[in-house]
Design a protein around this nucleic acid. Sequence first.
DNA 1: TAGCACATGTAACTCGTTACATGATTTG
DNA 2: CAAATCATGTAACGAGTTACATGTGCTA
Lengths: 188, 188
Amino acid sequence: VPTTLGYALLALLARQPRTGYELRQAMREPIGFYWTASHSQIYPELARLEAAGLARHQVVNGPGPRDTKRYRVTATGRRALAGWAAEPPEPGPERDELMLKIYALWTVPPDQARDLVDAQLADHRARLARYEAIEAEFRGDPAEAAALDDPRSPVFASFATLQCGLSYERHRIGWCEWLLARLAAGVS
Amino acid sequence: VPTTLGYALLALLARQPRTGYELRQAMREPIGFYWTASHSQIYPELARLEAAGLARHQVVNGPGPRDTKRYRVTATGRRALAGWAAEPPEPGPERDELMLKIYALWTVPPDQARDLVDAQLADHRARLARYEAIEAEFRGDPAEAAALDDPRSPVFASFATLQCGLSYERHRIGWCEWLLARLAAGVS
DNA sequence: TAGCACATGTAACTCGTTACATGATTTG
DNA sequence: CAAATCATGTAACGAGTTACATGTGCTA
């Protein structure tokens, strides 16, 4: 039984075969918004997946300088992934460093507190803009737009996570604005 | 320079002196929504804080069966806490296991997918109800209600984190409902 | 009298990050 | 020719969880 990282890799491999290096790239942008991993974690994990019979590789002499191993999920791996995805996630402890800082915000001079929240607000607005651009891409591509309503398509799944990201950023922006209004009220 | 856990402990001690055992209790409910720690982490960390001069303890023969050490922040610790709290948090990697499952949701039969999202929705509704109850307590207590607008009061800080929690649960509920509507559309 | 709350500590293990290690190919 | 990209691995370290270890006082 793999770790969460193992399932993350299977989830990527179920969409298309990839090398360890490509998996590492993928762990940045699309999926990287909610899960990341460095190559030093990925390579050993791929070996474990293969040992467990959930993935297998093929050596490929691609255009690159050295031989690369291209991994794909096995039928067993695909079943394991679906089984895992259908289970409710175990309620891991939420860890939000910003909230901890907010909890201690009364010890900070109000103008510094305002700077902190201002910076957060700017961050979230920037991320919202990025997500909105990605959303526009989804809707703009006819092939993808067609799959948006089919729960069996990967495009649907990607779009669902994107919607969550959009909603999250809007929530966070709203809260920052609320907090900023309170902090501004105490201006000298 | 302490770890995040160290600052979490300082944030609690800045409000009132506590023993290791009491800190462990506190890491469950109020602050535990966004940071948790077990006693096996807390006791060594307290020793480190003391070694760094940020907290100190006094042995107390309380009503309990054995001597307990009651910790309080030092003036240095208080300054360190305020300095840390004013700094923007470093953007740690977001890790959301549910999003990973959603990313793989296309591999899951739609009726199972619906069950998963249903369960999440119920969880979030329950947590929202809890937060709303806590909010009502804040507003009901005249002493606390008076401090709600003062950025220098711990009550204000606690209330701000609570508002974020309320907003977060509402965001998550909205997204679950959105997703459920898409999944229901594909009903056989 | 069995179990729970009180009360504090250490040890082993897992997960993740950063640094170490190597080396070819392409691009400026 | 120097730097970035491609490409894969291991080692050391830090943070966190679970389990080990000990012992008192109260309550069902």
